[in-house]
């Protein structure tokens, strides 16, 4: 019963409006790697952050295979996804979206697109303890001079960038904070 109640809650009250604001934040984040946006309106079972729940409600539906990893792959989370989003839950190699903590994401299994269709690649939603504009130095499209973000790794993102135009795109979530790192961003330690 508790599970069912949890599954029914945490969707948007007013999807057209809330999704539009959430998308604006998601777009601003993706267009300006390292910028930290605030995004809210959704609430999913723990340990999913408000930012990640809102992002899922905004971007995912029956047409987007979703992979839940690590401690985000729970019955409660699957019920919530099933009720609010309807995204098919799949394994990493078929995923269009992935949700979990950095250490749990099977990075090498995820689709990185093809030379003909580099857009057919996964977007990874990484749950973080906190986001801050410190650490790794970022440059490239969307960044005027240089930006910083506390990325969970350096070498991986450098390798990912080297695959361009193929590669993975990332969102980082902590509470209601959201930042992004597309494959186009150059990363320095």
């Amino acid at each position: 019963m508790a599970f069912e109640m949890q599954a029914l809650q945490g969707g948007f009250d007013d999807p057209p409006r809330q999704a539009s604001f959430a998308f604006r934040a998601a777009m601003m984040a993706m267009a300006r790697p390292g910028d930290i946006q605030h995004i809210h309106g959704g609430a999913a079972p723990a340990p999913c952050s408000a930012a990640a729940a809102t992002l899922l409600l905004t971007l995912c539906d029956r047409e987007t295979p979703l992979c839940l990893v690590g401690n985000h792959d729970t019955d409660a989370m699957r019920d919530w996804v099933n009720f609010h989003i309807g995204a098919p839950i799949v394994s990493a190699c078929d995923a269009q979206f992935v949700l979990g903590r950095w250490t749990a994401v099977p990075l090498s299994d995820l689709p990185i697109g093809t030379p003909d269709y580099p857009d057919r690649s996964a977007t990874v939603i990484v749950e973080m303890d906190e986001l801050s504009q410190t650490g790794a130095g970022l440059s490239g499209p969307g960044i005027k001079d240089r930006a910083s973000l506390n990325l969970p790794d350096i070498a991986f993102f450098q390798d990912n960038n080297a695959l361009f135009p193929l590669g993975l795109d990332f969102y980082f979530c902590a509470g209601d904070q959201l930042a992004a790192l597309p494959r186009s961003t150059k990363v320095e330690g």
Binding site: P15, P16, R17, A19, S20, F23, A26, M27, M30, A31, T58, L59, C60, D61, E63, T64, Y117, P118, D119, S121, T123, P141, G142, F164, P165, D169, P182, R183, S184
Partner: peptide
Amino acid sequence: YNFAYLDEQTKRMIRRAILKGLAIPGYQVP
């Protein structure tokens, strides 16, 4: 009609394309 005419599922599909477009500047996303 829905806010801004399009239904939410259509908007999500377009929003996903916009994000991939931003991630791969200059590439035409179908």
